[in-house]
């Protein structure tokens, strides 16, 4: 079979070269993919850092006249994002209240009945709901809450839109976490005569606690940055407000407002930097919880 040897000596060089070339192509593609991360984080850090001070966290957003005056003299724009911060915290808190209990329970239900058609159907519904664009959930909360309950834009409506976003995330992470618990642990509990509800809150939940916490934190980091549904529901407010039937602001809503006001440009960099750092640290926290406290 000298034909093989001849063919090989003919093509080895070429094949090795394309092999090396392809490797470089892959590395180049990967590098190009990560470049935007450095560009985004870098430009936000450099341009946003200047406006971050105490007032940034304690004072509500300035009006456009104040901003214009400051911008014209090159000063730091007075005021901050306190109204957005309180609004975000209020709505995220309410959304968690609405979404976490039914999310956890539905997740456990699916896990416990995973062989049944109904449970699998519920799981598919959660999957579909997870893929629904967030702006559509804004429309829904508008129809349900703004039009029919609070008769106007409100924190409640914003919270509901965020809660609908959160619910499928919690359901799926709960079910997936529970599925990693060895069946033997459950069986051991039942073998000792443990009642069903005790098995759930004394065994299932504690054993999978870090996984559940990770799921919740990841869901929170998702909804913290959401803007579109809030534009249709919470609307925004220049003042700090805790009335859930009235419009409130949120950090991403403030970014949107600042973005539409040319005088506020330097504030929008800072607000974006803050939002990004806030969301990413939540994200990192979730991952470190996931990797550190592992029962399973």
């Amino acid at each position: 079979m000298t034909e093989i040897n001849t063919a090989l000596t003919d093509n080895i060089g070429r094949r090795n070269r394309t092999n090396v070339r392809f490797r470089y192509l892959v590395i180049a593609g990967a590098v190009i993919t990560v470049i935007p991360i450095f560009l985004i984080v870098g430009s936000l850090a450099i341009k946003g850092f200047r406006q971050i001070n105490l007032a940034f966290f304690t004072q509500p957003a300035p009006d456009t006249f104040q901003a214009m005056m400051a911008a014209s003299t090159g000063d730091i724009i007075p005021g901050g994002i306190a109204n957005g911060l309180t609004g975000s915290l209020l709505m995220v808190f309410l959304a968690s209240l609405f979404a976490i209990p039914p999310g956890l329970m539905t997740g456990i239900y699916i896990y416990e009945n995973s062989s049944q058609k109904y449970a699998r159907f519920i799981r598919s519904l959660a999957e579909i709901l997870q893929g629904v664009p967030s702006i559509i959930l804004g429309i829904i909360a508008y129809i349900w809450i703004v039009k029919n309950i609070t008769k106007g834009y409100s924190a409640l409506a914003g919270s509901v839109s965020l809660a609908i976003m959160m619910l499928p995330l919690i359901i799926r992470s709960t079910e997936e976490t529970m599925r990693m618990i060895p069946v033997s642990i459950r069986e051991a509990a039942f073998a000792l005569g443990t009642p069903y509800y005790k098995m759930i809150y004394k065994i299932l939940i504690p054993v999978s606690f870090s996984g559940l916490a990770t799921g919740v934190l990841l869901a929170l980091s998702r909804i913290l940055g959401e803007t579109a549904p809030l534009m249709l529901t919470a609307l925004g407010s220049p003042a700090i407000s805790f009335d859930i039937t009235k419009p409130v602001s949120a950090v991403p809503l403030l970014i949107w407002d600042f973005y539409n006001d040319p005088n506020m440009v330097s504030l929008v960099w800072s607000a974006s930097l803050f939002l990004m750092v806030f969301v990413l640290s939540m994200n990192l926290l979730a991952r470190s919880v996931a990797s550190k406290h592992k029962y399973i």
């Binding site: 093989i4 063919a7 090989l8 093509n11």
Partner: peptide
């Protein structure tokens, strides 16, 4: 072996 090594025949 032949196709992977790009040997045509």
């Amino acid at each position: 072996g032949f196709s992977l090594n790009d040997i045509r025949m």
